[in-house]
């Protein structure tokens, strides 16, 4: 239980500064595969900046819940980011059992995003809300199983310790379990951030979309907040995957930071590769894949139980 000002500052700086870059890297990777130049690296920064300066258009049907969606969607990833370590830089906030709080924070964001989508009274947004809550519901057991494996290996119930210094040693003793967990958490990152193969963030065909269709009616600063929040969510969940993939520390803080940033960019490239080489799954196959992922993470736990 500790709060360190330096860590807090670093966390917020990394989160606010670096998170929109991931989307740029993904875009560039996809452009490379398609043989295009693609949007600039900093496109999302421009977008967010421009949207923050614009006016709002509100539907006549909507109420305060519609406005609450972006607010919660921005506040939640920021708070969640403070609970996890970025690379070997420890979490500014940590307490025993914070992983439960972490998971339910994202539940809060989901709750309000879905309610805000339904508040427009449009069938499209309703469709997105349904898919979001259903798929995330199936992804939740996976996260819990993954966390319980890490808790078992580290002997602690706080995210900071679970993704902390013991992780490197755990790779020696329980590599198979951790590898499975890595795959599962990567899948969860994809589904929670609505990337291919679960959702296509590019298409504007309502039938294929989840997240994009939910925010169809938001505009101006609200849309900017949503884009920023989504980028941060990707950053936060991605940070867990990267930490799992790059455990340990080099000893110097600068090097660790660079390593972490490099890891995040690599993750973005991987996501870009996945998006370029895979097709979106059929909608009814998605629950199957998610159940498969939870069973896989449960199996990795069984490996440890012996």
């Amino acid at each position: 239980m500790k709060i360190t000002i330096l860590q807090l500052f670093l966390h917020l700086l990394l989160l606010f500064g670096l998170s929109p870059l991931l989307s740029g890297v993904i875009g560039k990777t996809k452009a490379l595969f398609a043989g295009r130049t693609g949007p600039p690296w900093l496109q999302l920064y421009y977008d967010i900046w421009k949207l923050f300066g614009k006016g709002l258009v509100l539907s006549r049907v909507t109420t305060w819940v519609f406005r609450a969606g972006p607010v919660v969607g921005l506040a939640v990833p920021v708070l969640a980011a403070l609970l996890i370590p970025f690379g070997s830089i420890g979490a500014p906030l940590s307490f025993t059992g914070d992983l439960i709080f972490f998971i339910y924070l994202f539940g809060l964001a989901r709750f309000f995003t879905a309610c805000a989508a339904l508040d427009t009274g449009s069938a499209f947004e309703g469709m997105g809300a349904v898919r979001e809550v259903t798929f995330s519901c199936l992804a939740e057991p996976t996260v819990f199983f993954a966390f319980i494996v890490l808790a078992r290996l580290s002997g602690s119930l706080s995210l900071d310790a679970m993704f902390g210094q013991t992780l490197a040693a755990s790779w020696h003793s329980a590599a198979p379990s951790l590898l499975l967990i890595l795959v599962c958490l990567f899948l969860v990152t994809l589904v929670e951030n609505c990337r291919i193969p679960f959702d296509d963030p590019n298409t504007h065909l309502e039938l294929t979309m989840i997240h994009e269709v939910m925010v169809l009616d938001h505009s101006g600063p609200d849309l900017g907040m949503i884009l920023y929040g989504a980028a941060m969510k990707l950053f936060v969940l991605g940070a867990l995957v990267v930490r799992l993939f790059l455990p340990g520390t080099t000893g110097s803080m600068i090097l660790d930071l660079l390593l972490f940033a490099g890891g995040m960019l690599l993750l973005a490239v991987i996501i870009g590769v996945v998006e370029s080489t895979m097709a979106r799954l059929r909608l009814l196959r998605i629950p199957q894949l998610l159940v498969g992922a939870s069973l896989l993470s449960f199996f990795s736990l069984i490996l440890l139980l012996r």
Partner: peptide
Amino acid sequence: GYVPTLILGTLATAGSFIFSD
């Protein structure tokens, strides 16, 4: 159905791990 078979498969796998212990 695929999902029930998967669940059964996991249970069987878990069972075989526990049984072999």
